[in-house]
């Protein structure tokens, strides 16, 4: 099956962020970057589909400056077959601008399946996948936790709801955005890392759409007050109850 997986390079979220002097973005100095978690699930889902069906080809696509090549190589080292970088100086905030660039690249590719992560874990917009589907005129199922395309014609997808799940189907080709639960992304073996060095990575200029939405201001949440230790064991309970009633007013 011919599959495309869109991949975003995001900072490690388990960091104490600082705001850049511009006031509209995070300060990237000293940050570590990796593939967005949900994109990792998408890549793994694609690999498993083709491993089960045999053959096929998976293309990783990422938009951004040259540093995204590192993330694309990681996808290749997991076992994806080739990569395309849509080169842009920066990744715009406006999902539509990105979606146009991706759609332009994906349009001619005759992909059976186009996978996205449910969202990028840094911007949490959840918008690019559905927008690309719209631009390509394809059906879209979002936030999928189980995926079955084994008949080669239809997508059978499972979506988790609050306390329930639903099964959604649509014909291929289609766009699917992946939630966690599909499969843990595999750990690239050294063999995979070495092979990835030789796999094709194409660089093309990104045909970004118009940017209409921009970030006006970014702020960190106020520092949380330090926790207090009231004591240990049962002795501390009365004081805890008192404070929960008087100070926190939750009881």
């Amino acid at each position: 099956m011919k599959i495309a997986v869109a991949i975003k390079r995001v900072p490690d979220m388990d960091t104490r962020f600082k705001i850049a002097p511009s006031g509209t973005a995070v300060d990237e100095t000293g940050l570590k970057f990796d593939m967005s978690d949900f994109d990792g699930y998408a890549a793994e889902a694609a690999l498993q589909i083709n491993e089960k069906q045999g053959g096929g080809e998976i293309t990783a696509i990422s938009l951004g400056p040259d540093v995204v090549q590192e993330t694309l190589r990681k996808a290749l080292s997991m076992g994806l077959d080739k990569a395309v970088q849509l080169k842009a100086d920066a990744v715009p905030f406006d999902g539509y601008a990105i979606a146009e660039a991706l759609a332009a690249e994906l349009k001619g590719g005759s992909y059976d399946l186009i996978l996205f992560g449910r969202m990028a874990i840094d911007s949490s917009n959840q918008s690019v996948g559905p927008m690309v589907a719209e631009l390509l005129g394809l059906p879209c199922i979002s936030a999928v936790s189980q995926l079955d395309v084994s008949d080669g014609k239809t997508v059978k997808a499972r979506r988790e709801l609050e306390g329930a799940y639903e099964e959604v189907t649509c014909p291929l080709p289609a766009v699917v955005t992946i939630d966690e639960g599909v499969a843990r992304p595999r750990y690239p073996s050294l063999k995979g890392i070495m092979a990835a060095k030789k796999k094709p990575l194409e660089v093309k200029p990104a045909q970004l759409g118009p940017v209409t939405a921009t970030v006006a201001k970014m702020e960190l949440p106020p520092e949380r007050a330090a926790g207090r230790i009231l004591g240990e064991n049962a002795d501390a309970v009365p004081e805890l109850v008192r404070l929960l009633q008087t100070e926190a007013k939750v009881l």
């Binding site: 690239p188 073996s189 063999k191």
Partner: peptide, 9 residues
């Protein structure tokens, strides 16, 4: 680990 990426989770 290096060839097969096979190890306890």
């Amino acid at each position: 680990v290096l060839t097969e990426s096979r190890f306890p989770e």
